[in-house]
Simulated assay, not measured.
Amino acid sequence: MPEGDTVWRTAHRLHEALAGRTLTHTDFRVPRLATVDLSGRTVLEVIPRGKHLLMRVEGGLTVHSHLGMEGAWRLGGPAPAKRAGGDGSDRADQIRAVLGTAEHTAIGYRLPLLELIRTRAEHGAVGHLGPDLLGPDWDPAEAERRLLVDPERPLAEALLDQRNLAGIGNVYASELCFLARSSPWAPVGSLPAPLPTRLLSTAHRLLEANKDRLARRTTRDPHRDRALYVYGRERRPCRRCGTPITTGGYGPVDRRRTIWYCPHCQPGPAHPPPPHTPAGG
């Protein structure tokens, strides 16, 4: 599942392959960009911003994409590859963008957001994001301030809200709640000091440690099948106490998510409360 570390790694691979090189062919397979041709323009840089990708090209333009739940950018040779792997991602109907240079071709699959914007207008696309856990703007004090603005908000929701801090997805939300020994539905304002500070420090440490890894790891166990504490481990024993890991739902009704937790190690609300309504919303 793409989270901040995956997006960081994707951006750096794209930057290494494309930056400083001239686009020889482009093919955008979304209606609003169907007639766009960026051939002849030089790719200036590719940078991550939370879970967003910004590909800046000559002429003051930026290709802005978001990987969502299943999106991916893959690199191939100088001509668009007919196959990009054996996981079904090579299907032509899943391709949303093809950008090629004389050396490499970047292919975007299943991108829920793909748009071309003016580079000077990037703030309108990503300016709402909080401090980026893997960015030069990372500011733990500001992230903590934003996290606690709505003290009644469930912890998992507050962590996942990219306006508070950018880069956390459902995997890290599950793992961080476990590491904090807190129910995912506990009001974020109920966390005793200095737990919020420690939680953000842990989030930063984990994303930094995983940004160069293909297999994400939150435990210290070197075995691949023991890389995570709770995420994806429903009905399997908790690594601390042996209690079966269980799941629950959280978030708005129209964007409900599943979270994994240990009911023994994470005391607090055990069942999802009614959907949260932000103050004034």
Rank of each mutant, 00 (worst) to 15 (best):
A92I: 04
T258I: 10
A17W: 10
L214M: 08
R256W: 02
A166R: 15
Q266E: 05
A102P: 11
P140D: 15
L148N: 13
R91D: 11
P273N: 07
T218L: 05
L114R: 09
T246Y: 03
A11T: 10
A72F: 08
A84E: 13
L18R: 00
L176K: 15
L228W: 06
E45F: 01
G86V: 06
R226D: 08
R49M: 12
S183I: 04
A143K: 01
P194V: 11
A81L: 05
E157W: 00
L165A: 07
L114T: 08
S201W: 05
V188G: 08
V57Y: 03
R236T: 15
H264L: 14
T35L: 08
G77T: 15
V230T: 04
R29Y: 10
P272I: 05
V63S: 15
H104E: 04
R233L: 14
R255S: 05
G242Y: 03
L155S: 13
P136G: 10
V126R: 12
A279Q: 13
I107L: 13
H25S: 15
V98S: 03
T247S: 13
R96V: 01
P244T: 06
Q94Y: 09
T22L: 05
G251D: 00
R9I: 00
R29D: 06
A125Q: 11
R96E: 02
P136E: 12
L116A: 12
H66L: 10
L195Y: 06
V171A: 08
G167H: 01
H12C: 07
R217A: 03
W138M: 08
A125G: 01
I117A: 07
T277C: 11
H271A: 13
R257Q: 12
P263N: 01
V149W: 06
V171F: 10
G100N: 10
H128P: 05
G4C: 07
R257I: 00
T10W: 13
H276W: 12
D161N: 11
D254Y: 06
Q162T: 06
R120V: 10
G242V: 02
